[in-house]
């Protein structure tokens, strides 16, 4: 428990959780967390909501390998295996859009998080049966993005008590 708290201590401090995100087809937030912490925070928040992080695509390393210098740029994919399996069984043409994804990239000292709105994706398909599940994904994804947006980075207090 102490170890876990310490991890949060050095990493994140929740300020406020405020209203809905930018309404639109693209969900976007800017986080003050530096890239590595933002990436960890996204992973932790997704998992805390019961999703599995399937993998992190290192687009930046891919570019690097091809001889191109790039900044931090990763795509994280996630989902709940049972839901995805059931959906593809009924509607195979959903497969190209699954699992869900969040793009995480650095912009100077900040980190930007971008995702396609699942609620918007649902409107692209004629199947009314998928609306409820995509709406729930939308809600969860919004909460994840808002938490990371509102998280603040703090240096460990143990070394420097003078800040407070």
């Amino acid at each position: 428990m102490k170890k876990m708290i310490n991890r949060w201590l050095t990493m994140i401090l929740l300020l406020i959780v405020s209203g809905p995100l930018l309404a639109g087809d693209m969900l976007m937030v800017r986080s003050k967390l530096p890239f590595p912490l933002a990436l960890k925070a996204v992973q932790a928040t997704i998992e805390a909501r019961g999703y599995t992080v399937a993998g992190v695509e290192n687009v930046d390393l891919g570019l690097l390998r091809m001889g191109y210098l790039s900044d931090s740029y990763k795509v994280l994919s996630f989902g709940k295996a049972k839901e995805i399996e059931a959906l593809i069984r009924l509607y195979p043409e959903l497969a190209p859009y699954l699992p869900l994804q969040i793009l995480v990239f650095s912009e100077r000292d900040d980190t930007l998080l971008v995702a396609t709105s699942p609620a918007y994706l649902a409107t692209l398909f004629p199947h009314t049966g998928i609306a409820a599940i995509f709406a729930r994904w939308e809600g969860d994804l919004q909460v994840v993005l808002e938490l990371v947006r509102d998280a603040e980075h703090h240096t460990p207090v143990e070394q420097d008590g003078s800040n407070y």
Binding site: I5, W8, L9, L13, V17, T45, A48
Partner: peptide, 15 residues
């Protein structure tokens, strides 16, 4: 900090 961290963990769970 402990309080705020717990608040965060709580928020994650209750959000």
């Amino acid at each position: 900090f402990v309080f705020l961290s717990l608040a965060l963990v709580g928020a994650l769970i209750l959000s």
